[in-house]
């Protein structure tokens, strides 16, 4: 097999690297790999501006621009707003009740050491929206 790159791409944020310290809304500090669904829900409840929305994965396909990227189409919130995001295949999303998942979990684990499962159609990811639009 040809050697694969082990560089962390610059567009992959540093806070997904295993061991990164994350501050919850109540001030508690946790490692990124220890975060639970409840941590996000409780933090959003404390937040005055942000709320958690459910984003269901409707489609995953390769990007036309680069093999390192994937296009993930979500159905967001009760209005089922259709949103597509282009991300690196190793970019992790947090799935409700499950944890970190990416299009290519092997690469996520290789690059970030973050325990990760395969993101699949039908998975419900945590996303954020504004609490009130006035």
């Amino acid at each position: 097999l040809p050697p694969s790159s082990t560089m962390v791409p610059p567009s992959l944020p540093p806070y997904f690297i295993k061991g990164s310290i994350i501050q919850l809304a109540d001030g508690e500090l946790k490692r990124v790999e220890d975060l639970k669904t409840e941590d996000f829900i409780q933090s959003a409840e404390i937040s005055s501006e942000l709320k958690i929305d459910s984003s269901t994965v409707e489609r995953i396909e390769g990007s036309h621009t680069s093999p390192n990227f994937a296009v993930v189409q979500f159905s967001v919130g009760e209005h089922r707003t259709q949103v597509s995001v282009e991300v690196l295949v190793e970019y992790p999303f947090f799935v409700f009740g499950q944890g970190w998942s990416s299009c290519c979990p092997d690469r996520t684990t290789q690059l970030l050491e973050l325990p990760c499962t395969k993101l699949s159609v039908g998975d419900v990811c945590i996303s954020l929206t504004l609490k009130n639009l006035r």
């Binding site: 944020p13 540093p14 806070y15 997904f16 990164s20 310290i21 994350i22 501050q23 919850l24 809304a25 500090l29 990124v32 975060l35 941590d39 996000f40 933090s43 937040s47 942000l50 709320k51 958690i52 929305d53 984003s55 979500f74 967001v76 919130g77 209005h79 707003t81 949103v83 995001v85 999303f93 947090f94 990811c125 945590i126 996303s127 954020l128 929206t129 504004l130 609490k131 009130n132 639009l133």
Partner: peptide
């Protein structure tokens, strides 16, 4: 002796994609 290092701390919401604004009814 181990000198204390400053470790970056990231806010929880930076890990969550901000996907779409809530639509008003």
């Amino acid at each position: 002796n181990v000198e204390p290092r400053s470790v970056p701390v990231f806010p929880w919401h930076s890990l969550v994609p901000f996907l779409a604004p809530t639509q008003s009814d």
